[in-house]
């Protein structure tokens, strides 16, 4: 464990908690893409199946359980409890255009052709594009609540910090996972446009609104 990975995990945890609290406190999931949240629940489910097969550390197990629990709780709040506030008209990204190619790629490019490994690879690839429905929704509505931008910022920063974690681990431990690194770079690049808007607008106290 290094400072970048710990900071990344805490940023990821913060994002998940911020989103859950935003929906719970405001009793509304306006501006939130339910499709992205379903993709994240799928990412955690396919990646953390090793909860059943191997124990790495209390920290590892605890975080995985929290991530999975919060992901499904968020999906439940969006599609069941606060369904009336779900913005289905704008949350129209065709997720099958993400899941199918990612599923195919996981079969073609992986470290080992075993079920657990292919599911892990699928989850790594899926996570790198899972935020697209959310970014698409914001581009369609042309704006985002400030709390939602903080959620997105923490979520984007987490994988950027993981990139530094992988540099650190390659340098000090010789650890190196090309699949995770390439997917992590793609994932972070997808946030760059948002990062620019976040820094130039939200941090200056303005509302995040896109040129319609």
């Amino acid at each position: 464990m290094n400072i970048f990975r710990l900071a990344g995990d805490l940023s990821h945890l913060a994002a998940i908690i911020i989103l859950l609290l935003k929906i719970w406190k405001t009793r509304s999931c306006a501006g939130i893409s339910g499709k992205s949240q379903i993709l994240f629940a799928l990412v955690f489910t396919t990646r953390y199946l090793d909860l059943l097969t191997s124990f790495i550390s209390l920290y590892n197990t605890f975080m995985k359980v929290v991530y999975i629990g919060c992901a499904y709780a968020t999906v439940y709040l969006i599609y069941m409890k606060f369904k009336a506030t779900y913005d289905g008209n704008h949350d129209t990204f065709r997720v099958e255009f993400l899941v199918v190619p990612v599923g195919g790629l996981a079969f073609l490019v992986n470290h080992d052709f075993s079920p657990l490994e292919i599911l892990w690879t699928f989850s790594i690839y899926l996570e790198s594009v899972a935020i697209l429905p959310q970014l698409f929704l914001i581009s369609k509505t042309g704006e985002a609540e400030t709390i939602t931008t903080h959620y997105l910022f923490c979520l984007g920063v987490y994988r950027a910090l993981y990139l530094f974690n992988w540099i650190w681990r390659f340098y000090f431990e010789g650890f190196f996972d090309m699949i995770a690194i390439v997917a992590g770079v793609v994932q972070t690049i997808l946030y760059c446009d948002f990062f620019y808007l976040y820094v130039t607008k939200v941090l200056k106290g303005k509302k995040l609104s896109l040129p319609a």
Partner: peptide, 10 residues
């Protein structure tokens, strides 16, 4: 490059 694919990351 020494490639190790241990799954100790979240």
């Amino acid at each position: 490059w020494d490639h190790i694919n241990q799954k100790d990351e979240l």
